[in-house]
Design a protein around this nucleic acid. Structure first.
Lengths: 190, 190, 190, 190
DNA sequence: AATGAATGAGCTTTCATTCAT
DNA sequence: CATGAATGAAAGCTCATTCAT
């Protein structure tokens, strides 16, 4: 092994996530990232050709992780329980979710390589959406969820709930259950 | 004879909104703006000292408009009906809402003048939140909304609903009613 | 008119030529150019999108000038006299000629705009070559030049003569006549 | 057991030549070179202190080779025949010739060591020129070549002929004879 | 009022070069 | 010997901003 490795992918992706969430896609740059990691800016270029390369690689990694967790769900019986669990997964990984929503901003990618990665991400993203839709449809078929709401609207509602700030710092499991119950039963009294 | 007045505030704010929504806070430039408006970049500086000055001024204007609409509501009786109407206002002005969410990104303002404007905006924003919270609290007191949900959570839920894409292009009034009913009664069946 | 214009195309192209000849295509950069012209580096970007844009624009300008001079020749009778004159033109503009030879290095242009300009240049270049070839062929037909030498070889020989250093600083007209006579009659004695 | 010796000077110089000819002095990088050779960039530094060190070393090597071939000529009688042979040598080694022409670009060398090498090269280069000049002068004295042409002009003419593209891919020996005859007898008819 | 011109700050990116293993 | 890792210097480029007319 050569000089002690300073750049650890784990750490790099964490810092990337942090900055992306804090500054947004356009506000994210290698300058801040390198300062955060205490390495030279050029060092990052040894691993990623440019900003988009890093961002897409990071997204891919997180997407993989999230998908894995999602697919581990399938065994559980009730689709409603599945949705609740999905919400929990996304709430726990809310940062990731926020970043994934930035995919559309990548659309104008320059190099072919990046374009390919963006396409992969988009495809992956759709797959995830479909996976959730299927559960919703199943829930509707089983008569657990109202049939007069389009599944994407329900999916959106759930995803947006992720953004709701957990002021009291309720533990994730509880918090997601609470949110789910609000969405499930509504806010009305009685 | 002076050159024809090319810069109309109306038009300027519209273009600003459009670009802010499309490109985000960091992706917004005077360059693009001046091209959109077909004026010289430097012309914009005749009216606004800098980028943040324009953005905060624009936000202030929209905030005023939105607040005015909100306060026009008070006469109506049921707080639930009021919430429904609020949702409609925000859905109609969803662009504005998106931009207002960018306020935190302005926090690092350099000049005092901007800092002052940002503070005003933040204050205004809070006031709006309080206004909504009051309606929610009122609804809870009147036994129309569950008491075991913190008002900010409900407010958040409503605000986030704005983001849900109206794929079928249902007219705003109908769409907001539909969304409100989903949030109010929940997605469960029966 | 706004601030006094510092950047004059004439001057800019002259400096560009000078640096291109001295440093070569890869050694040419806006840093040196801006220093030469005593303007900020960014000022050059106000007029040319990038290095290649400037270089191709400059080449185009010179190419136009050279072509104009070439076409002004046609009236003269003997094709040999024409070739002699051509040599004089190119010797007088030897810097330009050197730069034009860099066209192939531009081939990997990034943007479409540049690609287009490069194509135009290449096309223009070929046209010039054909023009010269025609004169050579005519001279061969008229029995003034040996028929067993391919016209491009003759053209090449003439073009290369441009590079021969005029140590004694003989005036261009004389110098080109001298070179032409050497090429025409050869170096042998008798 | 040491790792297999990957860097062979032969191979290294060949790749250097190839890249120098293709990309020019400023376009030549260790990055490309190391990729071409499939070794780590840093490995090259084990042999050469820096870019210029490699380039000058390479030039020196080729210069030696060329000089050796030139000096092997001396026995042959007619100076004209010698010139013809010289042309053949340089045409066969046209790549090398191209690279040698880059010596002036090295002039701004930083380190003393490189400065020394550049001086050596320049000196060597001059010696070669003188050698050729002597042959030309001898040919003039013997009445084989016109006396009213300065020897450096003739040398230049010959050297430049190297650049003439051999479109038909005539074998080197034939090609150099053809070129020499053109230069010797001129292009005129009769 | 409007604008064309110029500029500096700051980010992006590429490479030569160093160094510890 | 060879290399992977890290870095700094320098070029590329974009934009906010200033200024004279």
């Amino acid at each position: 092994m050569a000089r002690k490795k300073k750049l650890d992918e784990q750490e790099l992706f964490l810092a990337t996530e942090k900055l992306l969430v804090k500054k947004g896609y356009d506000g994210f740059h290698f300058k801040a990232l390198s300062e955060e990691l205490e390495v030279a800016r050029s060092t990052i270029y040894e691993y990623y050709a440019n900003k988009d390369d890093l961002i897409t690689s990071y997204m891919m990694k997180r997407m993989d992780e999230i998908m894995e967790e999602c697919f581990a769900l399938s065994v559980i019986d009730s689709p409603v329980a599945q949705l609740k669990q999905l919400l929990e997964i996304f709430i726990t990984r809310s940062h990731t979710h926020q970043v994934i929503e930035m995919i559309p901003l990548l659309k104008q990618a320059k190099s072919l390589k990046i374009q390919q990665q963006v396409d992969d991400l988009t495809h992956y993203h759709q797959k995830m959406y479909e996976f959730i839709n299927e559960i919703i449809v199943k829930a509707q078929k089983e008569g657990l969820i109202r049939k007069n709401i389009e599944p994407p609207v329900i999916a959106s509602l759930l995803f947006n709930a992720i953004q709701i700030v957990n002021v009291m710092n309720v533990p994730p499991k509880e918090w997601s259950e609470k949110l789910f119950s609000i969405i499930f039963y509504g806010i009305h009294n009685g």
